[in-house]
Design a binder for these strands. Structure first.
Length: 940
RNA sequence: GCGCGGGUGGCGAAAUUGGUAGACGCGUUAGUCUUAGGAACUAAUAGGGUAACCUGUGGAGGUUCAAGUCCUCUCCCGCGCACCA
């Protein structure tokens, strides 16, 4: 029965009780229980809790509460990632102290978080801005510096004009704008503090494999790291120097007809004296530098470049002289900044060679392995004797001529022709075609495919498959003869669509084109090596290593990943704990001087110069500790550094001796499930894995990988289906809805919209009312209490099972739907007192406030949240009568109610008497398919 | 271009993993209550047809007694990467 309630009053009351009793604090590890570490990404304290925070924290709370009720000791900590630009920008705007602004926001945000009624482990909280937190951030940095993981790098960095600071590669979006401010990133050359994440590239890639993460997240990280395996090869120059190139295709070395250097390649400037057209070259280099990233990345534009006159290289395989070019299609920052160009087998090289009329040399032929399978049931029959070698294409409609042979068991599909004797000349084909088909006007589209295995076809080990190593694609010019000439009674000749041909035969490589040798075509696949001296006939993969060995190269990998630039020319962050001696050498600040406090006597308005440079206090502090002439580092750290280890600090948040003791880590690590946003896939998630690995190598952590499982939730969209934004006026204010319908309703509604993983959902104002209505019905459920309730206990135990399963697979939506069905049933059939109390415990993780209230109303004294989650009684779940579908000739014609163990005869008998079925049972029943408890299908 | 996900009512979505497609909720329609509310309850709600029935999970084929689910091809959408050698 529907019964309204004052959610505001109930929720306030229980939140207060929970806080006073501290029932969600975890305290010390209790080894009598299993541990569960549930992590959500700590928020930035913007001072305004939005609906996304609700989705991020309140929905996982269902899982947390469930696990607690299942008897686990659950750590569900919450903290604040409080350094960063918003505080600084707000402080500038309002002329405030960022520290005070941040602390006020944290305090306010805590009250907002309390309104969620989540089971947070507040006793384990921390904040990145606390000095006893950033002390450890700094200390780790100094350790990293000593191990050469942190270094002062040179080179080109991303400058965000909006943020007035350098940012990392990961923080630049693919359109070249800043992830935070949306401003277009400029390239600047300036010294930078970097972390050597590239040193961990292999481990960051390889260690993904065993992780129980969604494949798409792992794949995104792999792509971001972008390992490619290949080799470095040295090319001698006419000047006596040598150039190292990186290539993934050393097997094409014999086809390398020129070299290309990035315009910024050091050898260009070094050879000013040797390059006769240096003026032209210098102009091009200057032009390339000016171009912004966008231009350079535009793949559609035409290739440009300049030949280095007077300098040549030697192809180490052939000993031939080849020219050298510079071009901006070669990036200085990737590989070695130089490539060997193989125009026959690389699209870009091919395009460049065409424009500059550089010779093209083919060194790889496509190996065609077509495995043709005749129609069905391969295991029954032997094979197609003859198969394709003439593929005859219709002059106008693109169809292919095939020969079908029907022998009763299956259909053989042939392309017309066949029976080649191994001759490969076009003439021979033409002759054969004329003889066999009478076609006289045709053109050969694909040339003969040559492979090391010669021509013809052969059976593979699998007797049902046929391997063809040559074939001919012929297009008719006109249709002056009818293909019917080929019909012989057993075979029919038909034109079929290309798509049907593909249906009948699958083959590897068909997407690459019909043949390897079409003039002007660039074949980028692997295959059989040709025109490469002693390596002819090998396949590409084998040839790679052998060719590298011959020319003294080295197999190696290169990565897309760049080192992590962490220095920020802004104020509100962790000061980089480095001081410089009078000679300018960097020294880490010893542990006894940490935390190296962020100075407060600073005008932090952004000027592009680090604000800390203006601090007199910092200058004095440095000199008084280290001596006259010593100067402090004035940059602060990227806030992604702060968040790279916060989950460790939660474990031991008051430890003044270590980041977190190994004993505490052993208690809780690894994190069992990490809920977060997709935007962190290649930022925070990658950085923190890297950080953990460095700590692991330093012996400071127990785990090589921090997160056992990861789940990316989706986004809550505005009611109009668009991303929420102030300008669109579609922003949902959670506080307003909490006030109106309560936290339990908002939380359950968010959980009810769809599976927690992946998708984005529009916030529907009608939908949230539906959930509130459900809770009001639960509130009135006690009025349905009876002594005997029809089947309610059965449904209850099914519901328990369903809810348990769904929570553990993060399908909260179907868990809620199951509970709704249960309530619908109770309203019609009643419920016993015991079952009512059991149901409240099932609902408790979803609606903690209301269930706490109803629990007390039912006369209980212990908190419902300290009770056990009900266990499903399997004996009650089994049905004694089930409704199964009856099909006649595969069509649904009715249902029958029978026992799941009913015999076929019993089911059949029931079906005969079933209305709707019997009228279809006119003829004799030829076959009965009966799956007990599932279906009865009668073939008449 | 390459790599991952997805396409099911008016909407968000279910479907025991090959066995009654559309659970649950929203919305809509009709009705009930001296009823004016952003209330509750009852019933209907994939489409077509008076009906019996027919058609339906992006499209085309296939396998099967039986396909949203498996296979082949194809179209579209989202995300990641992309002159990365």
């Amino acid at each position: 029965m529907h019964k309204k309630f004052d959610s505001g009053e109930i929720e306030k009351k229980w939140q207060q009780i929970w806080e006073e009793e501290g029932i969600y604090n975890v305290g010390e590890r209790d080894n009598s229980k299993e541990k569960e570490y549930v992590l959500v990404e700590w928020p930035y304290p913007s001072g305004n809790l939005h609906i996304g925070h609700w989705y991020a924290f309140a929905v996982p709370d269902i899982y947390v509460r469930y696990k607690r009720m299942m008897g686990k000791q659950v750590l569900y900590p919450m903290g604040f990632d409080a350094f960063g630009l918003p505080a600084e920008n707000a402080a500038i705007k309002r002329n405030l102290d960022p520290k005070a602004w941040t602390n006020d926001n944290i305090a306010f945000m805590k009250t907002q978080l309390a309104s969620m009624g989540n089971a947070f482990s507040w006793d384990k909280t921390t904040s990145s801005t606390d000095a006893d937190y950033y002390k450890w951030t700094q200390w780790m940095f100094t350790e990293f510096f000593r191990k050469d993981i942190a270094y002062r790098g040179k080179g080109i960095v991303n400058w965000c004009p909006g943020c007035n600071t350098v940012i990392a590669n990961e923080q630049v979006l693919s359109d070249g704008t800043c992830e935070r401010s949306g401003d277009v990133i400029e390239k600047r050359e300036m010294p930078q503090w970097m972390l050597r994440i590239t040193k961990y590239a292999d481990r960051l890639t390889d260690d993904l494999d065993p992780l129980d993460w969604p494949e798409h997240i792992k794949e995104a990280q792999r792509q971001w790291i972008g390992r490619s395996n290949g080799a470095t090869l040295d090319f001698k120059l006419s000047t006596g120097e040598s150039v190292t190139v990186f290539t993934t295709r050393p097997d094409t070395l014999y086809g390398a007809t020129y070299l290309v250097l990035a315009p910024e390649h050091p050898l260009v400037a070094q050879n000013e004296a040797n390059i006769s057209n240096y003026a032209e070259v210098a102009d091009y280099v200057a032009l390339a530098k000016q171009k912004d990233e966008q231009d350079r990345l535009d793949t559609t534009k035409e290739k440009t470049g300049v030949k280095l006159e007077g300098v040549t290289a030697t192809n180490p395989a052939l000993g031939e002289e080849i020219p050298i070019y510079i071009s901006d299609y070669v990036l200085a920052s990737y590989g070695t900044g130089a490539i060997m160009a193989v125009p026959a087998h690389d699209e870009r090289d091919g395009a460049f060679a065409k424009k500059f009329s550089i010779p093209v040399k083919q060194v790889v032929a496509e190996k065609i392995v077509f495995t043709g399978i005749s129609a069905p049931k391969p295991e029954k029959e032997t094979l197609v004797r003859e198969c394709v070698d003439l593929m005859i294409e219709h002059p106008t409609n693109g169809q292919f001529l095939v020969q079908k042979e029907v022998d009763g068991t299956h259909t053989h599909i042939h392309f017309v022709g066949g029976g080649t004797d191994g001759e490969s000349q076009v003439v021979a084909i033409g002759r054969e075609l004329e003889e066999e088909t009478g076609f006289t006007e045709y053109e050969i589209i694909g040339d003969v495919v040559t492979t090391s295995q010669g021509h013809g076809y052969r059976h593979t080990k699998d007797k049902n498959q046929l391997t063809i190593s040559s074939f001919y694609h012929i297009k008719l010019k006109s249709l002056d003869q009818k293909p019917s000439e080929l019909e012989d009674g057993k075979h029919t000749i038909e034109w079929v669509d290309k798509s049907e041909v593909k249906n009948l035969l699958t083959w590897e490589g068909h997407q690459k084109g019909w043949a390897a040798f079409t003039e002007g075509q660039i074949f980028t696949g692997t295959g059989v090596i040709i025109n490469s001296g002693e390596f002819d006939g090998l396949d590409s993969e084998t040839a790679k290593e052998k060719i590298v060995e011959k020319v003294g190269g080295k197999m190696s990998s290169t990565y897309r990943l760049r080192d992590w630039s962490i220095g920020r020319q802004r104020y509100w962050g962790v000061p980089i704990p480095i001081v410089y001696d009078p000679e300018g050498n960097a020294h880490p600040i010893p542990k006894e001087h940490l935390p190296w406090h962020l100075p407060e006597d600073v005008d932090f308005k952004p000027t592009g110069v680090a604000p800390l440079a203006k601090s007199e206090e910092l200058k004095k502090r440095t000199e008084s500790i280290f001596g006259a002439g010593w100067t402090p580092e004035v940059e602060t750290m990227d806030t992604f550094v702060d968040s790279s280890w916060y989950f460790l600090r939660y474990l031991d948040n008051k430890n003044s001796e270590e980041i977190a003791s190994l004993a505490h880590q052993k208690d809780w690590m690894p994190i069992d499930i990490y809920f977060g946003g997709a935007e962190h896939t290649t930022m925070h998630l990658l950085y923190s894995r890297f950080w953990q690995k460095v700590l692991f190598d330093l012996g400071l952590v127990t785990e090589n990988e921090p997160y056992r499982r990861r789940l990316n939730r989706g986004l809550i969209l505005g009611p109009d289906g668009n991303k929420m934004s102030k300008s669109k006026g579609n922003v949902i204010d959670p506080d307003e809805h909490v006030k109106r319908v309560g936290a339990d309703t908002v939380k359950m509604y968010l959980a009810f919209m769809g599976p927690y993983e992946g998708s984005n959902y529009p916030f529907d104002l009608g939908g949230i009312a539906g959930v509130r209505r459900f809770l009001e019905r639960v509130n009135g459920l006690s009025e349905h209490i009876v002594d005997v309730a029809f089947d309610t206990d059965k449904l209850l135990h099914k519901t328990i099972k369903k809810v348990s399963e769904d929570i553990t697979t993060f399908k909260f939506n179907t868990a809620i739907s199951a509970m709704m069905m249960f309530v619908n049933h109770v309203e019609k059939n009643g419920i016993t007192t015991g079952d009512y109390e059991t149901f409240l415990r099932v609902l408790a993780p979803f609606a903690p406030h209301l269930t706490a209230e109803l629990w007390v109303a039912a006369g209980k004294t212990e908190s419902i949240h300290l009770t056990k989650f009900p266990e499903a009684d399997e004996s009650l779940i089994v049905d004694d009568i089930v409704t199964i579908a009856v099909q006649v000739n595969g069509k649904m014609r009715g249902t029958i109610a029978v026992s799941p163990e009913a015999s076929e005869a019993e089911a059949l008998e029931a079906a005969r008497h079933s209305e709707g079925v019997e009228k279809y049972l006119t003829g004799e029943i030829r076959k009965v398919i009966y799956v007990p408890g599932k279906i009865l299908n009668l073939i008449v």
